[in-house]
Nucleic acid binder design. Structure first.
Lengths: 209, 209
DNA sequence: TAAAGTGTAGGTGAAAACCCTCAATTTCTA
DNA sequence: TAGAAATTGAGGGTTTTCACCTACACTTTA
């Protein structure tokens, strides 16, 4: 598990990456350089925190193309585009696709660093949310099919006897499942359970009666 | 209460607004035209659904200035910027500030209408969320201070006896407040209550013991 | 001043949830 | 194939919630 954030720089211009990595490292951040988008794609691990400084125009895979591939991989790494050309439609397109910033050359060092900081903060909270979500999903995966049904009943506020009649099983069995659900989801009260289910995308089908 | 969405057009170019409103009305949407940003600001009601087609450059208040003022009013009306000039930093700035699109002239009618539709869909779901939120807030406002404290206890999964000892009141009083809370919030079960509180921004201070 | 609302607290009893143990059947897996 | 997990069910107990009821002091409002 990596701790430190890495600022990935993907740009085919050797002088540019040199300059960028110098600026980045001057404030104590780690930089990792790629001169081709594909090289980055080959090496990047989705669970590595950081952000991506991405040139728009490059031989081979372009910046926007890389963005598309990362989206397809559902990698949430924040992307800061860097462009020397004033292409408004392109800038708007990549921003709509989720880029966190779009800088035009030449830009101030301070502007760059501010943008990187924003991206890293964004990445951090995104990862924290994903972390929580993954933990909830992991617990949820422990439940047997029957337990999931009972869980849904509980979360939609049904009493055990209602659940038992809907599932055509005995009240005692529902109680058993219910206790098992609380244990596996590691919660001690119904409100905690509801929160866990609601705040993490676990869908609730609200089985109607 | 207004039912139909209105596409507001704010642009100082008479020929442009003429053309825009023609396109908009050709697909059965209502258009409302302003040649000055201030005129729009004077007349717009925040609870009117719709979207805003906004020129960037105008004499008097500019498009981005109007966006800033709307943000300050926490008006969530989606804004589609229209610009004839390729100013990338400006486009990026307004997109980061929440604009839903940024079109550069000349643009295809189809592109415009697609963007308007997206904006209207966005506005619709935003308003639905705000609606739910407002209803929950309204119910929440009915609660007395003591009832709010008890509500927080319930939502954080505390038993009545725990709440009673924390608030230094009798168990019986907590029960009374609890019943009152359920009634005023018009829910029948604790899970429903938790959902209502969680999904609508009602903060829960998790009163620590 | 009277009525309404709030906060307090008690009683009774039913219903529900929670806790434990035990055990039979089936189904999955090492 | 044997053991583990899932599903089912039951007995018997405690604890908690819930639904009624009553009551009184205090504040705000009509």
């Amino acid at each position: 598990m990596s701790i430190d954030a890495i600022v990935y720089v993907v740009d085919d211009d050797a002088a540019m990456v040199e300059s960028l990595s110098w600026i980045i490292e001057s404030v104590g951040l780690k930089a990792k350089i790629f001169t081709q988008a594909q090289d980055f794609l080959d090496e990047y691990k989705p669970d590595q925190p950081g952000c991506l400084l991405l040139d728009v125009r490059m031989p081979g895979m372009s910046g926007p193309e890389l963005q598309t591939k990362l989206l397809a991989l559902s990698a949430t790494l924040p992307i800061i585009f860097i462009s020397g050309h004033g292409d408004v439609p392109l800038a708007v397109r990549v921003m709509k696709a989720g880029a966190i910033d779009f800088l035009t050359k030449p830009f101030n060092d301070q502007v760059l660093l501010e943008s990187i900081n924003r991206a890293l903060r964004f990445d951090k909270i995104t990862r924290e949310k994903q972390q929580e979500n993954a933990q909830a999903e992991a617990k949820f995966a422990l439940l047997s099919p029957r337990e999931v049904q009972v869980l849904q009943g509980i979360v939609s506020g049904k009493q055990n006897k209602v659940i038992s009649s809907e599932l055509m099983i005995s009240l005692k069995t529902v109680e058993a499942h219910r206790a098992s659900v609380m244990k596996k989801m590691s919660v001690r009260s119904v409100p905690e359970l509801v929160k866990l289910v609601l705040t993490n995308g676990v869908q609730e089908h609200a089985t109607q009666d």
